[in-house]
Amino acid sequence: MHLLRQPKEKIQVFSNALLNAKSKVGQCKRCFHLTAGEECEICLNQQRDPSVICVVADSRDLIALERTREYKGLYHILGGLISPMDGIGPDLLNISHLVNRVDRENTKEVILALTPSVEGDTTSLYLSRLLKVFVKVTRIAYGLPVGSELEYADEVTLSRAIEGRREVE
């Protein structure tokens, strides 16, 4: 209804923008993030550390991590998680590209940032086994959300947090 009340010109501009997005936005040839050019803004940014690659399932996860402004390395988008039930095997994800890229770019560390579901853990374990022979592989810690009370955390989160405990510095 809101759209129908707008003047025709405005609708024209809006629909052109949508068509443009559809036709011009493609994937970065290096990390598979969304971009209008050959490579995305992050890969082209000289300020970022090219020796670290953070692996995520899709571009939405990248955007969430970018909001933290903490991470200064590059990314690699898998395009999903391994899930045979949904017909998704490793061959359908950007995994061989990742292996080649780590080799070619002389990467020092790969950080796996995938959800802790069965599919996410399977993908993490698969990738770490493929990569750890020639690069350091780490994964993000699972634990308690900041601002939450320990006593209200569920047992699954708590046991994961205990498994991933660290020595106090």
Partner: peptide, 18 residues
């Protein structure tokens, strides 16, 4: 079932993960 249709590389690595 997935592998029945197409033989893949690194099958053992994926089974290890499971």
């Amino acid at each position: 079932r997935y592998w029945k249709d197409s033989e893949q590389a690194n099958q053992d690595v994926l089974l290890d993960a499971f």
